[in-house]
């Protein structure tokens, strides 16, 4: 580790019950890098993203994210620089898309106007009154991408980056990812369609370890 990496994992292992999710996973993600994460269903991609996001503690190994060693109390200080869009929507179904986005702004100490602006940018200005549980998967996904616009993260983690999105929205994912990369941040995208990823390099999760993909 040279101290400049955004994500650094050294021999990270995770065991849940009798299943080994990860073993000796090594990963290094530097500023300006956009990396794809590939792997078959159930191989632990989502779990790996949650470890990188400091939400899940590995059972072995060490690592650091944005300078904070994982498993220590330091992670509380850097979490607000990470945005993760998971495979389940991080929205409250009873609230409208507008309220959900405003909530992100409020909970992160920003003004609600930022939220309205972000919602317009992802093309949901006219759907802001629609409840999340009345919205399509693609709309929820767009509303979640608005979160990345509001928070301007240094580390962006996108699970199933292209699932449920139309061509326009896929272009939007690229734009948002490129913006993070241009600002010196790092992006990791999970996808089952490597051709669409448009990344610098890809790693693949096989049998609990990470392999480079040429």
């Amino acid at each position: 580790m040279n101290g400049h990496e955004i994500v650094y994992l050294d021999d990270v292992g995770l065991r849940l019950g009798n299943t080994i999710i990860l073993r000796e996973a090594k990963l290094s993600l530097g500023p300006g890098e956009k990396v794809g994460l590939l792997g078959p269903n159930g191989s632990g991609k989502t779990t790996l993203l949650r470890i990188i996001a400091t939400l899940l503690q590995p059972t072995s190994g060490s690592g650091a994210v944005l300078g904070a060693e994982i498993g220590t109390q330091d992670v509380y200080e850097i979490r607000n620089r990470i945005v993760m869009v998971g495979h389940l929507p991080g929205l409250w179904p009873e609230l409208t898309l507008g309220e959900n986005t405003e909530l992100v702004a409020r909970l992160s100490g920003r003004s609600p106007e930022v939220a309205a602006d972000a919602l317009a940018q992802v093309g949901l200005a006219r759907a802001s009154e629609r409840r999340a549980d009345q919205s399509s998967k693609g709309m929820l996904r767009r509303a979640e991408l608005a979160r990345a616009l509001i928070l301007e993260p240094t580390l962006l983690l996108l699970d199933e980056a292209h699932a449920g999105l139309d061509a326009e929205a896929i272009g939007m994912v690229d734009t948002i990812a490129n913006r993070v990369v241009a600002g010196g941040g790092a992006v990791m995208l999970v996808s089952h369609e490597p051709d669409r990823l448009n990344v610098h390099r890809s790693v693949q999760l096989v049998d609990g370890t990470l392999e480079m993909v040429s």
């Binding site: 009798n18 080994i20 269903n41 159930g42 632990g44 049998d207 609990g208």
Partner: peptide, 14 residues
């Protein structure tokens, strides 16, 4: 011990 004998890696069951 059971874990050593029956451990499976994520995804191996699919």
């Amino acid at each position: 011990k059971r874990f050593e004998q029956s451990q499976s890696v994520a995804g191996a069951d699919i």
